[in-house]
Nucleic acid binder design. Structure first.
Length: 501
RNA sequence: GCGCCACUAGCUCAACGGUAGAGCAGCGGACUCUUAAUCCGUUGGUUGAAGGUUCGAAUCCUUCGUGGCGCACCA
């Protein structure tokens, strides 16, 4: 590693940084390494608090309990011949330390060079202050990494939303609820994995770069492979690869990974988002509905310990069973009659008088879908399965036995957002080819999101795929729900932002 | 992409046409049980950028940049 000058010209000039660099030099002049490595913390703040918070001081003083902790100095109060500070460590807790000149002797003056934000390691013993706060009486300490930049304000924290996202590390240091949210996210993903593993699923990873973007209606990102000399697309869904695995003989597979969609960014949309998709052979969408209830309740219990919680204004209750309404019946709730649903003209007519814009040349199903998004979806606050979608909206789903215009498909809505999309997978290769052809026609009409013909996938189906049920669940949105987050950016560590100039 | 709002010290915010301020952080000093420590003193600004109006602009206008929210698209 090369030595860099401390007066690096590329670094912005700032008085506070200059002062800290001066302290850095002074520490070196004292023969200390401000980026020392030689410290092993035996304890974490959270463990110490858990073990000793309820023990009274006389007992702590008698037993002499050693403690060693490493972390960031987040508060510092100096009294001349003694100081108090709080250290925040990786256990997400803060513990107070007491630094007295009598005890630290000739090391005490080093504290002059200490700043809030520095990483230090301390050794000492546990005691309680007069106010009853569990504290480490430090007998030795070491600066492990000197901070050159000051932390944001201790009381108000970091509020500027742009800075919070761009400098997430600061957000994590000073806004404790952020750590809580991402701790929940981690628990949620772990709970999904546990659940699937306990149900005999194998976790797989399928390609992120697809020669043909498929498995969803969405606009893809395009990239280029130099050696192959070919265009590739970042995947919009893993669906078609996971189904190839079912053809290959796996009976239960799941994948937790990113999808990429080249579309708008909003509080509900990030260009890359995490989905879990899973496929289970010899089952159908009816099975999946109860399976989904079981799955999401398990995850909620593991992550937040309850099925009843607040989301914004709403009191959400995940207790099964969840309401099941057919796509067509759901329109009755919005005040449409059978007559209004008779044909495309009837739907378009109702839409027009109710101020909903139906694009010209829209099919019956597309017109219904527009009305659904406008009038039905916003009302689906409590968990609701909308089932039996029109075949035109579901090019990869199996037709209903008793009505070939509809499919064995459901979408799960909670807080007016689509949380899951599932169906009995279409495994008739000839029907699938026909559906792709219909999509090609839509594409030629200008629908950029219509599916693309995938001959390789069709060939796989021609080798026979067992009857299979498949489902995708938007992890980010489910994390939003369970952590009461109003923006998807609050549940993604580094959300996509415009580049800074 | 369209609309609305915001951008002032490292951070959180005032000042809304008349000398740019406070708190925290920092710096100097006092203080051995504080915890938003306290007390005394003090540094810190091209008010997002560029134009314009005006005797005078952080403030009004225009353009641009960045962000947030809403709409549209989507999961």
């Amino acid at each position: 590693m090369t030595e860099h000058s401390e007066e690096d010209k590329t670094q912005e000039v700032n008085e506070l940084i200059e002062q800290r660099k001066k302290k850095l030099k002074e520490l070196r002049d004292m023969g200390l390494d401000p980026y020392d490595q030689d410290f092993q913390a035996a304890d974490h703040a959270a463990d110490l608090i858990e073990k000793y918070a309820d023990v009274d001081n006389t007992k702590l003083e008698e037993t002499i309990i050693p403690a060693s902790v490493a972390g960031r100095v987040v508060a510092y109060r100096n009294f001349g011949k003694a100081s108090f500070a709080h250290i925040q460590d990786s256990s997400d807790k803060r513990i107070q330390i007491y630094l007295a000149r009598d005890i630290l002797k000739d090391k005490f003056p080093i504290l002059k060079k200490l700043d809030i934000g520095d990483i230090i390691g301390v050794n000492g013993r546990m005691f309680k202050t007069r106010t009853g706060e569990l504290t480490i009486e430090v007998n030795d300490f070491k600066i492990l990494a000197k901070a050159l930049r000051p932390l944001p304000e201790k009381w108000h924290g970091l509020k500027d939303v742009e800075l919070r996202y761009r400098q997430r590390y600061l957000d994590l240091i000073v806004n404790p609820e952020v750590r809580t949210t991402f701790a929940s996210r981690s628990k949620i993903i772990k709970a999904f994995r546990d659940f699937f593993e306990r149900h005999g699923f194998i976790e797989v990873e399928t390609p992120m770069m697809h020669p043909i973007p498929g498995g969803a209606a969405a606009k893809p990102f395009k990239t280029f492979h130099n050696t192959l000399g070919m265009e590739l697309y970042l995947r919009i869904a893993p669906e078609l690869y996971l189904k190839r695995l079912i053809v290959g003989g796996y009976e239960r597979v799941f994948e937790i990974n990113r999808n990429f969609r080249n579309e708008g960014i909003s509080t509900k949309h990030n260009p890359e988002f995490t989905m879990i998709e899973f496929y289970i052979a010899y089952k159908d969408y009816n099975f999946l509905m109860s399976f989904t209830e079981e799955l999401l309740c398990y995850v909620a219990m593991q992550a937040i310990g309850t099925l009843k919680f607040k989301y914004g204004e709403h009191d959400i209750d995940l207790t099964p069973p969840w309401r099941r309404v057919s796509f067509l019946d759901s329109f009755m709730d919005a005040g449409l009659s059978q007559e209004n649903l008779k044909d495309t003209e009837a739907v378009a007519g109702w839409a027009k008088t109710n101020g909903i814009d139906i694009p010209k040349g829209a099919s019956y199903a597309m017109a219904l879908d527009e009305v659904f998004k406008e009038r039905i979806e916003p009302k689906l606050i409590q968990p609701t399965f909308i089932i039996d979608y029109p075949v035109e909206l579901s090019p990869l789903a199996k037709r209903k036995k008793d009505n070939p215009a509809l499919t064995d498909r459901f979408e799960l809505f909670i807080t007016a957002r689509e949380m899951a999309n599932a169906f009995s997978e279409l495994n008739d290769p000839i029907d699938q080819r026909g559906r792709f052809n219909d999509q090609l026609i839509d594409r030629q009409k200008g629908d950029e999101e219509a599916h693309v013909m995938d001959e390789d996938f069709l060939r796989a189906l021609e080798f026979a795929m067992p009857p299979t049920a498949g489902e995708g669940i938007g992890i980010d949105r489910f994390v939003m729900l369970l952590t009461n987050s109003q923006s998807i950016r609050d549940v993604i560590l580094f959300p996509q932002l415009k580049p800074q100039q």
